[in-house]
């Protein structure tokens, strides 16, 4: 396992470089930020001075070499917008998103396991129909719309929760509920699907014939096999959350990396964008490795295949 881990980490370095080079080049295709940062009536000299000050007058390969030189010294550049250290800004925003994403996923997985198993016990039964309808609806509602309706209902009409912000436990409820729906909806269907097929497997019949209780059959035999796919899909959904918390963060004023990223894209704040992308990419790569390892640990069935490869 350790060898595998080392290999995976080593083989992630190049793709990470590719991500950064891609972001670097693409960001610079979106135009010189001078107009955004200079007064509207800035003269050409002021524009040139701005470009020179920020190294934007150099050819792209030179800029890139400079940047990677800086990265090696852990210097990720300065934000054009705030004048602060880009890496510091990204590192400050990241935990907020991570907490949101992690809490959301833990809740989504727990809820989905309960609902999914419940549905799988009687395929096509009432519980199954209801839960699949609810989960599909949950997965197909536009998140920003849900967030705004949520604020309207729970913060304004009922007054139970704060509208937005990060102060107090109540402020977590709406963002998490908004983020939760899609992963929950998808996971319920995954858990249900794999439980249904797991419950009709011969080894379940065997377990039953040996007189195992239904609870033991479900939790010990079936769920163990059904959990592996749920875990991997959950991993992919987490990647989506880390990248896609933008909408929720924008609406609720959550100071996370998604908001930072969209702001720095729209404001052409290249250094911050690169730092934020690099950080999320590292997190996503790490998560992918963890998922694969978790999958191998959970699902004994893949181990023989592992040996073969």
């Amino acid at each position: 396992m350790l060898i595998y881990l080392r290999k995976r980490i080593a083989s992630s370095a190049l793709p990470l470089m590719v991500v950064i080079v891609g972001v670097f080049a693409l960001a610079r295709m979106t135009g010189n930020p001078a107009s955004l940062y200079l007064p509207l009536n800035a003269t050409q000299q002021m524009r040139d001075a701005f470009s020179a000050r920020n190294g934007l007058d150099q050819p792209l390969p030179v800029q890139m070499a400079d940047y990677f030189g800086g990265v090696l010294r852990l210097d990720f550049g300065q934000s054009l917008r705030t004048g602060q250290d880009a890496a510091a800004m990204a590192l400050r925003a990241f935990p907020a998103t991570l907490q949101l994403a992690a809490t959301t996923m833990v809740l989504a997985i727990l809820l989905a396991l309960v609902v999914g198993c419940w549905a799988a016990l009687k395929p096509n039964g009432i519980a199954d129909r209801i839960s699949s309808f609810v989960s599909m609806a949950a997965a197909s509602i536009p998140d920003f719309w849900l967030a705004i309706v949520g604020i309207w209902v729970f913060a304004i009409t009922l007054g139970w929760l704060p509208t937005s912000g990060v102060s107090g436990a109540g402020a977590w409820v709406l963002p998490i509920a908004t983020l939760l729906l899609r992963p929950f909806g998808v996971l319920v269907q995954i858990v249900r699907g794999s439980m249904v097929s797991a419950l009709s497997e011969p080894y379940i019949k065997l377990a039953r014939s040996r007189g195992a209780g239904e609870l033991r059959v479900v939790t010990h035999h079936a769920l163990r096999n059904a959990a592996a796919p749920a875990l991997t899909v959950a991993g992919d959904l987490t990647v989506g959350l880390v990248n896609g918390a933008v909408v929720v963060e924008t609406i609720f004023g959550w100071p996370g990396i998604g908001k930072l990223m969209i702001d720095s894209i729209l404001q052409r704040d290249f250094a911050v964008l690169q730092a934020a992308v690099l950080l999320t990419a590292v997190a996503i790569f790490a998560l992918n490795i963890l998922i694969d390892m978790g999958y191998a640990l959970l699902d004994a069935r893949v181990r023989p295949v592992t040996v073969k490869a």
Binding site: P95, S167, W172, W254
Partner: peptide, 15 residues
């Protein structure tokens, strides 16, 4: 998660 939430985002003063 709970451990993390204690440190950076959650400010308990509700303003």
């Amino acid at each position: 998660v709970l451990g993390l939430s204690g440190c950076s985002v959650a400010n308990s003063d509700a303003g």
